[in-house]
């Protein structure tokens, strides 16, 4: 294994076009944009469907449909339709992150104990208060789970996006392969893998932080009660 590309300090200098910092930044940029758009679309819809129970068919099947859509095909379809550029890639990324967020939001809302919602109504909360003070916080662990898998998917897909001319860490893989520079391919693979794992770790910490400890219930093993 040849790590020379990865450990060449020149590639780590800030502001160098094609250097790691710039590639990582653009990679994260596309990913964040895609995720943001995905959340803006999927979260309200998921909350609405989960709260009212209307249109649940859509939410349940979105997950399956989303998983079966081939990433590369969608990406290339968008570019072929709309031409090269950021927009088609963003559309493809958004289309890919909407299903997991939508499905998990719906699933999280549905899993909220009905009795608790009843109690909240009984205490005099208005529908929106029930939604944001009770249902949403309780659904958050599941929603965060969906968001994390969406984030991983978007990081992976942003890698593939280099094949349609976009920047990001995928450049190292695609360009390296094109010129048989395996040191560069290896560097790209390592950095993108580390980035994905690190991001998932950070999101796990965020989840721990935003989810009430009363819900995260650090898996208490069912004690075989010694009576």
């Amino acid at each position: 294994m040849n790590f020379s590309y990865l450990f060449d300090p020149e590639h780590w200098e800030l502001g160098v076009p094609g250097g790691f910092p710039q590639l990582i930044l653009s990679h994260l940029g596309y990913s964040a944009l895609g995720l943001l758009l995905g959340v803006i679309i999927a979260l309200p819809v998921g909350l609405y469907i989960g709260h009212t129970g209307r249109g649940s068919f859509l939410a349940i099947n979105a997950g399956n449909a989303g998983r079966s859509l081939p990433t590369l095909g969608l990406l290339m379809l968008m570019v072929t339709l709309l031409g090269l550029g950021l927009l088609p890639v963003l559309i493809a990324l958004t289309v890919l992150v909407v299903p997991p967020i939508l499905t998990s939001t719906y699933a999280g809302m549905r899993a909220v104990d009905h009795g608790v919602v009843d109690a909240a109504k009984g205490m005099g909360m208005r529908p929106l208060q029930v939604l944001f003070r009770v249902e949403f916080p309780m659904a958050l662990p599941v929603i965060m789970g969906g968001f994390r898998s969406a984030a991983l998917q978007v990081i992976a897909t942003a890698t593939v996006a280099a094949s349609v001319g976009l920047g990001g860490l995928g450049r190292l893989l695609i360009d390296g392969l094109a010129v048989n520079d395996y040191s560069r391919v290896l560097a790209g693979a390592v950095v993108v893998a580390v980035l994905a794992v690190a991001l998932d770790l950070i999101l796990a910490l965020v989840q721990r932080w935003v989810v009430s400890p009363g819900l995260s219930g650090r898996r208490v093993r069912r004690a075989t009660a010694a009576t």
């Binding site: 893989l173 395996y182 290896l186 993108v192």
Partner: peptide, 23 residues
């Protein structure tokens, strides 16, 4: 969790290096 979070393209191009297979 770690394995599943590795992007597929990265794994596809990394494996030949690891396994000594052809790309």
């Amino acid at each position: 969790g770690v394995l599943y979070s590795i992007p597929s393209l990265a794994l596809f191009v990394f494996l030949p290096v690891l396994l000594g297979t052809k790309v």
